[in-house]
Design a protein around this nucleic acid. Structure first.
Length: 780
RNA sequence: GCCGGGGUGGCGAAAUUGGCAAACGCAAGGGACUUAAAAUCCCUUGGGAGCAAUCCCUUGCGGGUUCGAUCCCCGCCCCCGGCACCA
């Protein structure tokens, strides 16, 4: 009964594990231990995601080489994780920086390359002219370099991409397949939005310099397209621009190119733009419309060109007003003629009809959409299409601390894959891993490393000097865990079949789109290549919540960061684990307060007392209080379902209640105490182990079996039900379970309180919910 | 702006998704034990009125549906997270 219990492996920072990590790992570990107690063979691996910009930046800051920094950090993490008490299988530990690991990351790149899913193209990157380095988007703060404050510019570099967009439809479709994916809804919606499917049409406008293709989600508004806008990078800009307009257009394009990507996309949303002087024909009206260039149109989305419908699009409207372009209304709400001038942008909401749209006028918007697409297809001027917001995955990093991309560039042969037997392409340990004036990637300064013969023709060639994105490392680590000792292959097919897909994956929702989407994509490609027997790697995924301190997110600048080590030393790992699991619903997180730790600790102390009482008594038997038996069945049920649904806080509450019940009747019956210890074990493994031994349990408590409850015994024979008059509870009566309405009603009518409120009147209506409540309605 | 998650005692939170609101825990107050303190144990603790039995009010705000709403519907307000010129 294999059960793969996965949690997101940490990035080994110099600061050590923070409470968020502890919370994440404890919750996942509790689940793994629970499954083990239920009789599953649980595989719970751990590893380190140690490549990447974070480590590199820290190394630059402290002047320590990452190759020495990382092992130190990992050693610290290992000891913290051990103290936490995770059920980790250390035999399968891995680090992405280990050549025995990244050899296969490079192999993975080659599989994608062979499958035609990896390609090279020029793309914009953020470039700091002062530090002479490429920056990640997160390192650009309002257009300036995070480190030196210099204005960041855009550069176009040749980079490697993965064709994740080829999989957009499948990535989307599987989200709705409950057999393949049982995921937190918040995560699947995040992925849906990220993939961003839009249905619409591609339409061709005949232009002065050849046809211009646009994508629109609203072909029904075609008659309202009064101008067109090209992205500054659009290839047709040069050709369509008239001589008179050329200086202005060129200046505009230069200015757009100088803006960094972040400012360009999220900065001020002014609708700047210049006319090209050229025109194109609106295929519906046959009227010429002016063609403009503006950077609010992005080259990366759709066709890089739009038809502008200012009457019904907010951005086009703002642009038209600013540049005094015509606005023609083609949608009207019920009762409107459409002749009224438009002062603000309107979208075609439900109930809108087409107006000013020739033969399509008067059609409802939805039907107009379909009819216009049909017409475009007949005329050969367009077709219905689907667009995705998802972009291809750029995996090139002009950095040092990552796996070198296994490609050799040859003047004659072009890019050539490094032969598999030559893998890994080792990352050389260089002293000058910091960026400086000399070039693009630090590796590009090391001729002795990048100058190699072409594997195909033998002529002098050079290695790719970029390294790959860390997200590629983490996109397949769960496959490697199972085969860490194998030197000659990335993973063993038999083990893939037996252990995968992952039965439970728990992690933070900050990875809802990148890591979790990339991993799915990589699995799909490998599946299509016949290398994996499944296409969805994580059958069940749950996003855990976040821990805040005093109502706000923990951060160094706020000074409210909780250092877990202190708490472990003071309260013990088990109290700490229990507290973390008790402070709120696991999928929501909660507020960390120092005072709260006392509760779980006191609870464990009381259990300990109970165990000692059992030890001191030699005779195993003790009379068991009748009410306790019902409580026992209820507790087993509540704890079991709580663990299943990750409602750890209520599972712990149930255990506390059970303890209180035992103490109330002074019961320390050994079998019950043993069962409680078993149910406690996922949360407090060290403590439970000790108790188990003292109670005379055989072997480890984790070899015990999980108690089973009897549904029939979870209910009392007698129930107390509230009696309401006009919906307000006025009394409570105790009746046998399952009592008939007549019995309960008779008992209620005998009740003094009730007769007082009835005041001699007969109830007009009686509502009886068996074992729940009785409501007598007399009217006012 | 769009998407997602929330708003319940002094605090963290429960509530079988329409049936006794506040389980469990923290903190606070009172008491027991102690020379004293800590620890432990017992009691009280949503707000208001009352000597009391008891009554009235209370799940962000305003409406609605219902015998009955923390839960469903409509209209708002606020907080957290993500995405954001996506045509």
């Amino acid at each position: 009964r294999p059960f793969y219990n996965l949690m997101m492996f940490p990035y080994p920072s110099a600061e050590g594990l923070h409470v968020g990590n502890f919370f994440a790992f404890t919750g996942a570990d509790v689940y793994g231990r629970f499954k083990r107690l239920q009789g599953y063979q649980v595989f719970e691996p751990i590893g380190f995601d140690a490549f990447g910009i974070h480590s590199e930046n820290f190394a630059i800051k402290t002047g320590t080489h990452p190759a020495r920094l990382i092992p130190r950090n990992i050693a610290n993490f290992r000891s913290q994780l051990t103290r936490l008490g995770g059920m980790f299988d250390w035999r399968h530990e891995l680090s992405t920086t280990d050549p025995a690991y990244y050899r296969w990351t490079q192999w993975l790149f080659l599989q994608l390359y062979r499958a035609g899913k990896a390609y090279r193209k020029k793309a914009a990157v953020n470039w700091c002219p002062n530090d002479k380095t490429v920056l990640a988007n997160e390192q650009v703060i309002t257009g300036a370099c995070e480190r030196c404050g210099a204005q960041v510019e855009q550069r176009f570099l040749e980079q490697w991409f993965f064709r994740i967009t080829d999989y957009a439809e499948r990535l989307l479709a599987n989200l709705d397949d409950p057999v393949k994916m049982d995921w937190s809804a918040s995560t699947t919606t995040a992925q849906r939005n990220w993939i961003g499917r839009s249905e619409g049409a591609e339409i061709e406008f005949a232009g002065d310099a050849g046809p211009i293709r646009v994508f629109t989600t609203r072909p029904d508004t075609l008659f309202g397209a009064t101008f067109m806008v090209l992205a500054p990078e659009h290839p047709l800009v040069d050709r369509i621009t008239t001589e008179a307009a050329r200086p202005a257009v060129q200046a505009y394009r230069r200015a757009a190119a100088a803006k960094d990507i972040v400012t360009r996309k999220v900065g001020e949303k002014d609708k700047s733009g210049v006319p090209t002087g050229g025109f194109a024909l609106n295929p519906a009206t046959n009227q010429p419309v002016p063609v403009w260039v503006a950077d609010y149109v992005l080259m990366e989305y759709g066709t890089g060109a739009i038809m502008a419908v200012p009457a019904h699009d907010e951005r086009d409207f703002a642009f038209a007003v600013m540049h005094q372009l015509p606005i023609v209304r083609v949608l009207a709400r019920p009762g409107e003629t459409g002749a009224t001038p438009v002062h603000q942008a309107e979208t075609g909401e439900t109930g809108c009809r087409l107006v000013n749209s020739g033969p399509f006028s008067e059609l409802p918007a939805g039907e107009g959409f379909r009819r216009i697409v049909d017409w475009l297809e007949q005329e050969g001027k367009g077709k219905g299409t689907v667009q995705y917001r998802l972009y291809d995955w750029c995996i090139s990093r002009q950095r040092y601390w990552g796996p070198p991309i296994p490609i050799i560039n040859c003047r004659g042969c072009g890019p050539v894959a490094v032969p598999e037997q030559d893998l890994p392409v080792l990352l050389p340990e260089i002293a000058d891993f910091q960026p400086d004036d000399s070039g693009i990637s630090p590796l590009a300064r090391h001729k002795e490393w990048f100058e190699v013969p072409c594997p195909r023709c033998g002529q002098p060639a050079h290695r790719e000097t970029d390294v790959s994105d860390t997200f590629l490392d983490s996109a397949w680590y769960y496959l490697r865990y199972l085969s860490t000792e194998l030197g000659n292959r990335p993973f063993h097919p038999d083990r893939m079949k037996r252990w995968l897909p992952v039965a439970s994956y728990i992690g933070g929702n900050e990875h809802a789109v990148l890591h979790l989407l990339y991993s799915r994509f990589i699995a799909m490609v490998l599946c299509d290549q016949g290398l994996l027997p499944f296409e969805e790697p994580f059958r069940r995924f749950r996003a855990h919540g976040t821990i805040v301190k005093d109502g706000s997110k923990m951060s160094k600048s706020r000074g409210n960061v909780v250092i877990p080590d202190r708490y472990l030393a003071r309260w013990g790992a088990d109290s700490f684990r229990m507290y973390l699991m008790f402070l709120g619903p696991y999928e929501e997180g909660g507020d960390f307060r120092d005072e709260g730790l006392a509760g779980p600790r006191r609870f464990l102390d009381k259990v300990w007392e109970l165990v000692q009482q059992c030890e001191q008594r030699t005779s195993a038997g003790q009379e068991v209080h009748q009410g306790i038996v019902v409580k026992w069945h209820q507790t087993v049920k509540r704890v079991t379902t709580g663990l299943k649904t990750l409602s750890y806080n209520t599972a712990i509450a149930a255990l506390m209640e059970f303890l209180n019940a035992l103490r109330a009747v002074n019961c320390s019956e050994r079998r019950m105490v043993k069962d409680m210890v078993v149910m406690l074990a996922p949360f407090a493994p060290h403590f439970a182990e000790e108790c188990w031994e003292r109670l005379g349990g055989a072997g480890s408590v984790f070899d015990a079996s999980w108690p089973a409850w009897d549904e029939a015994l979870t209910v009392e024979h007698k129930v107390e039900i509230p009696v309401q008059v006009n919906g307000k509870t006025r009394s409570k009566i105790t009746v046998p379970r399952g009592a008939a309405e007549s019995t309960v009603l008779a008992a209620a009518l005998r009740d003094r309180q009730i007769s007082k409120f009835l005041d001699g009147k007969q109830p007009k209506k009686v509502i009886y919910v068996k074992d729940r409540l009785l409501n007598l309605v007399v009217g006012s």
